[in-house]
Structures are given as structure tokens and as C-alpha cells.
Amino acid sequence: MTAITSSAPTAPTSAARPRGVIRDFINQQPLGALSFVVILSMTIAGIFSEWVSPYDPLHIDFAAILQPPSWEHWAGTDAYGRDIFSRIIYGARTALVISLTSSFLGSTIGAILGIASAYFGGWIDDWIQRFMDILLAFPIIVLALVVVAALKTAVLFGIDINLIVAVAIPIIPRVCRVVRAAALTIRVMPYVDAARAAGYSDSRIIFRHMAPNVVAPYLIMFTAFMAQAILLEASLSFLGLGVTEPTPAWGLMLSGNAADFYREAPWMILFPGLAISLAVFAFNLFGDSLRDYLDPRFKV
């Protein structure tokens, strides 16, 4: 992550047309393209869960408890006879909704604070950075847990708001740092001086002139934190402090009494964990490839 702190945003020259960009990306970053396919299929599973999943994820069937993987139940069933494969598909929706909103919130607030910090400088910069220092003194999951402890449970329209805020807050200072560094190089550009000389307002300069030029680090951070957010949501749910039963969530499927079935039903542990790992892996790899692609300093 330190590698991109000083990256000036530069668009690849060979890719002026949108189709050229995609072909270019596939050629240069085959692993990145592959991980995008995984992300895409996860998204489809999340959006169209009702059509994709073979069973109702909440349907309890005591006649089919702890069944091993078979043609009827691809990933087996759990202690309540619920189909694990269907729960994983619905779990993709939970994971995506929470991680997308939280990393969008966290990255955007972080980016705005970072640009403002770089643009205004002086005491505003000092105060914002000192505040970020405070937030950075916590490991990600510890800060998230403190937020969970603070907000208790807050559910709005069936979405755990407390969880989204808990995942978003640790992202803010980390994005703020990187975007501030990128924005500092932009602030001294002639066009920012020109905009200021033309008498534009501060907010117009920040949003219309500077923000578009830190899109590259923003996008890289956004995808990287998608991975972190999925992992964090899964960890919190695993600890019993995130998504609550009976909502299907990957971390939740591994928590509680799942550990009692190490021997009898290893599929109960194997498949949800694989889903988390694959999703996080795909976002990490995609973020990595995006960085290599957008940041020419890393090209061979």
C-alpha cells in the first residue's frame, strides 16, 4: 500500500478508447481480468439470488440435517437442514451490500478529507491529520468493534447500519492519507492556481478540479478496501457481533456451533470459508492489477 502513496494520477496513453482500455487491461493483467470474472459472478449471484439459488436459504428441513454434498445439495446441508449452497449465494448479497456501501462511504469521506487537507494546508491540515493519527492507532478490527460497541444494533430497512458504519470508519484514515499525498502533488499544478485566480470557490476547486485527478488512487483504494470490508464483515459476523441469524452471511455460517461439526460435517466449514476467501482474493488481486495498470512506475 505504501507503493501508491506518491503515485501521480496518470492515465495509460495507449488506451484512449474504452474498448482499447479493456483489451489493454486483459493483455497486461491476465490475473486481474480473471479476478474480475470472479467478482462479476459474485455480483450476479448477489443480485439475482432468488433465481440462481436452488433452495430457499431460510427453509428448515429436519428430514435433511447434516447431509454431505450431493446432486441435490451441492454443498451439503447444515444442522437445520438448510441448503448451504443457497445460503452462500444469498450470503454474497449480504457481503456485497455491506462491503460496497461501507467501502464507498469510507473511501469517499476519506478522499474528500484528504483533498481538503492538502488543499487548505495550515491548521486545517494539522487538525485533520492529527485526528487521522488517532484513528490509525487502532487495528482495523478493534476500531470496528469499538464502533459496534458504541452503536449497539441499528437496523434500517433490514440493513445493519451499525455494521456498515463500523466497517466504513477504519477505512477513512487509510484512504485519507493516500489521497492527501496524491492531492499534494496536484495542488501545486498551474491549473489549480488558475482556478483560484479566476475566483472559483474552494468547494468548486476541490470537487471539480482536484477530485477528478485523484480518481486513480481513489479507485485503487476502493477495490482494495472492498476486500478488507468483506473480510471485516465476515470477522464481525463470525464473532457474533455482525449480521444476525437467520440472515445468510458467510462469517455467520462459520460461527457458533459450526465448530461442533468438524468431524461430522466438515462441508459446513469448508464452503462458506472458501466463499469468503475467493471473494476477498478476487478483490485483492483485482486491486493489485488495477494499481499495476494505472501506475506506470510499476511497469516492466
Binding site: 476486500a227 470477522s235 466449514i269 470459508g273 469468503i276
Partner: peptide, 29 residues
């Protein structure tokens, strides 16, 4: 290099609690 890259990104992606559970399952098995 590719193998190391995949192994290390795996380290960033595999949740430590699941990895721990796999270790327990392996020991038991």
C-alpha cells in the same frame, strides 16, 4: 514469482479464523 504472489495474496484473503478452523480439522482428521 507468480506462485509467491498467489500465496501471499492468499495470506491477505484467507480469514485467519477459517484458516484456524482448517488447522483444527486437519489435526482432528
Amino acid at each position: 514469482d507468480y506462485v509467491v504472489r498467489i500465496v501471499t495474496i492468499g495470506g491477505l484473503s484467507i480469514p485467519s479464523f477459517w484458516f484456524g478452523m482448517l488447522i483444527m480439522m486437519g489435526l482432528l482428521y
